[in-house]
Every structure is written in structure tokens, then in C-alpha cells.
């Protein structure tokens, strides 16, 4: 049985807060552990913040992932912003064009169990993550 996607539009920095609240709500509902919830919420915060910083608007979709006896959540964050020219470069530590710590993407990858990124310059960026626990 596949679960329904919960979709939220990302329009302003306020939506970072809303996305975090929603993901925590979902994590609570499926009985995810505190540590996994903290990691997932942080990853979501990073990704949605990126959208508001670089792309202005986007979309976040989340749904409980299905695996026997282990709660999980799958999240997709996508935008039609400028995209990332060099993904390999962006996935390295301390590379930031936004005047911050430059740990966002590689750090986010370490926080979750699955991490896929698709980006095309001028087309946008799509990141899919899954967290178990």
C-alpha cells in the first residue's frame, strides 16, 4: 500500500518553519525515533532553506515510506530555480555561494539514508531523501 504524498508549496522563508512542523507531525504519527526525527527535520530545513535562498519558490512533497517494521519518510524538494552547474562541486565540503557555512548539501546527505539529487542549470533542482528509524 503506497501512502499519499503531502505537498506544500514553498513561497517564502516562513515556509521553512511550516515544512519542519509538518515533517515532525508526520514523524510523530508513524512513531519515528527522536534522533531520526531530528536528523530528518534538519535535512528538510536545509533543503527548503536552499529553495528560498536560491530559487525563490518550490515544492516539498513528503510521505511515509513503506518498509517492514521500520518507520520511514520519503521527501522530495524541488524548484525551478537556476539549478546547480556542478553538482560534484556542490557536494564537497565548504562550497557555498550563499555566504554561509557551505555544509548544507554534503551535511544533509550524511543526515539521511538515501539522497538523490538532480539538477540542470536553468531548469531547477530536485532532491529526494529517505530517512529510516
Amino acid at each position: 500500500m503506497s501512502q499519499r504524498w503531502r505537498r506544500l508549496r514553498i513561497l517564502s522563508p516562513n515556509d521553512v518553519t511550516i515544512a519542519i512542523l509538518e515533517i515532525r507531525e508526520m514523524a510523530k504519527r508513524i512513531d519515528m525515533s527522536g534522533a531520526a526525527t531530528a536528523a530528518l527535520a534538519t535535512a528538510v530545513s536545509e533543503l527548503v532553506t536552499n529553495v528560498t535562498k536560491y530559487a525563490d519558490t518550490g515544492l516539498i512533497s513528503m510521505r511515509p515510506a513503506v518498509q517492514i517494521r521500520r518507520p520511514g519518510i520519503e521527501v522530495i524538494v524541488e524548484d525551478r530555480g537556476p539549478g546547480i552547474a556542478d553538482i560534484e562541486q556542490a557536494m564537497k565540503e565548504n562550497v557555498s555561494t550563499g555566504g554561509t557555512l557551505g555544509l548544507g548539501l554534503p551535511g544533509t546527505r550524511r543526515l539521511v539514508d538515501e539522497f538523490d539529487i538532480d539538477s540542470e542549470p536553468g531548469q531547477g533542482t530536485r532532491v529526494r531523501i529517505v530517512k529510516w528509524g
Partner: peptide, 14 residues
């Protein structure tokens, strides 16, 4: 700093 926040900070590489 709770254990999960401490862990998150380390994972993020901060």
C-alpha cells in the same frame, strides 16, 4: 544540547 542535536551538528560537519 540534546543527544540528537549534538549528533546532527556532527553529521552536518559544523
Amino acid at each position: 544540547l540534546s543527544p540528537s542535536v549534538a549528533q546532527t551538528i556532527v553529521e552536518l560537519g559544523i
